[in-house]
Amino acid sequence: MKVIAMRDGSPLVTIQVVFGTGSAQDPAGQGGVAWMATAMLASGGSRTLTYKQILDALFPIGARRSFGGVLPDVQRDDPRSWLAAG
């Protein structure tokens, strides 16, 4: 795990999570599996919350969630910004 921390005085917090894997790793006959894995994380529910519950929780704070997409070598999950607590 590598963490790149670029802290400043802004009231926002931005996080980007990138996995060094992608569609180039799709096993034979499973084209799109990397894409679907990322989609399930970014636009699906977690074990404890349904997708609807996640959408409802993020909505009032205007948090932006974007499914950065899948490339052959990297998958960018969920870059997002929100206002820090307070």
């Binding site: 926002l12 909505f59 009032p60 704070i61 205007g62 948090a63 932006r64 910004s81 929100w82 206002l83």
Partner: peptide, 15 residues
Amino acid sequence: NVKSHLRYRFALGLN
């Protein structure tokens, strides 16, 4: 919630 969403979205966008 919607009012809050709009306010945050506007402010977050001016970055």
